[in-house]
Design a protein around this nucleic acid. Structure first.
Lengths: 353, 353
DNA sequence: TTGTACGCGTTATCAC
DNA sequence: GTGATAACGCGTACAA
């Protein structure tokens, strides 16, 4: 455990017979040293397996070379919703390519969330953050502005935000799912929604309503849920208990939809003859349950990657002296999600025909 | 964006009319300032909303106050396996309680993994790492020792390791599942295993074999898989294609088991009458598919929390001057997982009786 | 309690 | 253009 022998830039400089400054120049590829000296310095540094101490450098250049991601959901939801893992993976992919780091925090409530952002900003652990699960009237936007912590949001918040957003046209996918059911002949279409206080929960619900309205219909019923399988199961049970149950249910998330299939199955409802079901996200399991789930394929990893890229770009602009935060003109638009038709949807009463 | 006005310790000292050293003492709650002065200093610091710059402090005390977690799996597997999200959440829970940070990296191959550990160590981004997905003959152990980077492993590696391990008796759960099937009267029991090069993949397989051997049996068949739903589906198809198919399948992971249910369903196999299925982990969805999955309940979050705790303890000991790495006597033992019996298991040919 | 050296790179200034 | 020298960033720790 050769803890004491970790070389510093001074050791490298001495070994190479140059000044510390020269080593720094050589390492960072800037003019000031001849090619021969540069090569020698780099060789020596490599031999000593020296790399600059990230902290010392960060302190000097006033940049952490790290981005933060603060996830605010119960610890359980995080495990149950594959979305987060994909998001993290996407962010990480970009961040690591730049030799930056991802600092991750999971918080349980609003207070902890505030405190965490404050800590990240004050301690300067990160240069900026990715804001996910944007809420309706999201208080974090103002908070981050006040803290002076640059950010990128996933979707554009409903309230004005000075930060760039990574946008994807969820609506299109949701409407495609409803359209698909309408085309199959369904008229009693229910929706199991995400929480209305989440921007994407609300947005997806509006999309369902809009597409139905375009066909002169209204949702047969809307049950607000929270994206978990347990809540999805409850919601489906509730819908099946209606005097006049729906013939199709559009879910705002796959785990809810899969649980819905399970409940229907358990009650002897024939799938998809008696009930058509759609999901949202296309998690890996979606194609492997029975009947395989018709769902909307999103690319959460691309979302994470897009957000990280936007953030890195934003920070680069700021490092270049541009104090602006970017705003809408730097929004990144991702390709809209597409409907994946599988076996969980069919014309209503298909078996009866 | 008041970037330039971020206060430093000097500003606080000036405002409070004391020296910088006094502010430092007051903040860290150590003797050297009177209670009255301490209170005043803290009040001023709070008013200016000053918190010590993490980098400057880290540089001085030579500690990053951060732990690393390097996940080595394809980006897809990470999203599909809820285990990771739980693990991350567990680690984070502990880490944040200490006001430390979690630095997360996702790597795609061995080279990248090596490079990442090296970077984390050389740049001193983290004080230690949590090593998950321990492999048979895991090369990372030696590498980490060479880098001088303290670690905690999830399960004790098969090869000697100087690091503490968080251990949980997977075997017990796996054997309980097999026992359960034997008790139901099954004799043709197959196993869909995880990769044999993963410590827990191999361990679970051995447990299945051991329990069957205790009953004078051998696995009806073993299909090696990779923990994904897709692979699980293929494995089940393969088993059902056998001239003499198994009456029960024990899976090393829930996603594989759920996909197995789907395949069986699609083929018209009656569940659980014609085929009993067990999983491992008890992901949230497990109780909501049809039939609800009999599985082994593990607590991945507790695993993450245990690992983080062990790591923080280890680092505290080292900070206290103890250069030892801990080793086996600091292993943490978690309660063994338990079997959760649901509807996916029944006596063989139950409906026929 | 105060003054100040220190940790470790980066960068502005300066000499050749 | 090459390179050395020294100041700097921001807390902490130790001598005074």
């Amino acid at each position: 455990m050769a803890r004491s022998t970790r070389p510093t830039i001074a050791d490298v400089a001495r070994a190479a017979g140059v000044s510390r400054g020269a080593v720094s120049f050589a390492l960072n590829g800037r003019p000031g040293v001849s090619d021969r000296t540069r090569a020698r310095i780099l060789r020596v540094a490599d031999e000593m397996s020296w790399q600059p101490d990230h902290r010392a450098r960060a302190m000097r250049v006033q940049r952490a070379q790290a981005v933060g991601l603060v996830l605010h959901r119960s610890v359980d939801t995080i495990a149950d919703d594959p979305f987060f893992a994909s998001l993290i993976a996407g962010v990480e992919q970009v961040v690591s390519r730049h030799a930056w780091s991802l600092v991750l925090d999971v918080v349980a409530d609003d207070d902890e969330e505030r405190a965490t952002y404050e800590r990240l900003a004050r301690e300067r652990r990160v240069d900026g953050v990715v804001v996910s699960d944007v809420r309706v009237d999201d208080p974090r936007i103002g908070h981050l502005v006040a803290l002076g912590l640059p950010a990128v949001t996933l979707q554009r918040p409903t309230t004005p935000s000075p930060f760039p957003a990574v946008r994807v046209d969820d609506d299109r996918g949701m409407r495609a799912a409803v359209r698909h059911l309408l085309d199959l002949g369904h008229r009693r279409i229910a929706h199991v929604a995400g929480p209305a206080w989440l921007e994407h929960g609300l947005r997806r619900r509006r999309a369902v309503e809009a597409e139905l309205a375009a066909a002169g219909l209204a949702p047969h019923a809307v049950v607000e849920s929270d994206f978990t399988a347990a809540a999805g199961a409850r919601a489906t049970a509730q819908l099946l208990d209606l005097a006049e149950p729906p013939t199709a249910v559009v879910h705002a998330g796959d785990p809810m939809a899969v649980a819905g299939l399970g409940v229907a199955h358990a009650r002897g409802v024939r799938l998809p003859e008696d009930l058509s079901v759609t999901g949202f996200d296309d998690v890996e399991l979606a194609g492997h349950v029975h009947p395989p789930l018709t769902t909307v394929r999103t690319d959460s990893r691309a979302w994470g990657a897009g957000a990280a890229t936007a953030l890195v770009d934003l920070l680069a602009r700021r490092a270049g002296g541009d104090d602006a935060l970017g705003g809408e003109e730097h929004d990144v638009h991702l390709p809209p999600p597409e409907l994946v038709v599988r076996g969980s949807t069919a014309p209503p009463g298909a078996a009866a025909t």
